[in-house]
Design a protein around this nucleic acid. Sequence first.
DNA 1: CACCCGTGGCA
DNA 2: TTGCCAAGGGT
Length: 307
Amino acid sequence: MTLMPAAPAPPATTPQTSTLLHAPVIDWFRAHARDLPWRRPEAGPWGVMVSEFMLQQTPVNRVLPMYEQWLARWPRPADLAAEAPGEAVRAWGRLGYPRRALRLHAAASAITERHGGEVPRDHAKLLALPGVGEYTAAAVASFAYGQRHAVLDTNVRRVFARAVTGAQYPPNATTAAERRLARALLPDDEPVAASWAAATMELGALVCTARTPSCGRCPIADQCAWLAAGSPAHDGPPRRGQTYAGTDRQVRGKLLAVLREAVSAVPQAALDAVWHEPVQRARALDGLVADGLVEPLPGGMYRLPLT
DNA sequence: CACCCGTGGCA
DNA sequence: TTGCCAAGGGT
């Protein structure tokens, strides 16, 4: 066996392998990005933050009209903070996960009190806000302020799983390895990194989709490890599906729907009508009260929270 | 870390 | 029709 010539050490100016992905993905984004309202300059950091809360586990198409309504009604954090939290819950409509509305209201209050009404730029300060986790803090810092952060949402995780790792789907929970990979792939230059974050998310949302990816339209198909391996089916633990019918969540949804429609406080009987099983019904109502989504009043009356 | 938390569209 | 899935966060 002959000795292969040693590979020459790459000159310092040679880009690392990962950067071969940057230009095609960012170029694709420039050509194909959707014109979403929270991407327009006039959205501002508050618009970005509102959109990020709404987009948590909720599709873009359902968020669009709610986003417009919210920004028209509450153009600044202080405007929302001045309202009762119940008004945020009511205006949330049927977006789902109404605790997000409560947390967004609480975040607006914190921004008003602690940050002079301006959405903070600092990642740690963003992370300290109610309802802002690792993803949302990075997203706001990156999209609203152009900073360099690894933005690791379900779309990006899937793109990396396929293109780099060669797996059809990422792990159920975000792993340290994924965070490491996301940081390693992040372009050095700050504005380029911000473009990369938005571009990889959009690629996952439009092309590298969960069910039937459009690999024929993918700008990095020629570099995709999963495609190169013949698009092998997912192996590993199945992502456990979420049943809904008959759960407390469904009951909570029905109870809250009654309170959202009501102009003022609602009697117990009106809530009892939405679900036949009294034990589960009571548990669901108790849960809503415990979460601060419902305010119990004397005399068995209930309403959305005023404070 | 596993589980809880809404809702609706689509294959 | 029925799962699957959608820019997660909190406990």
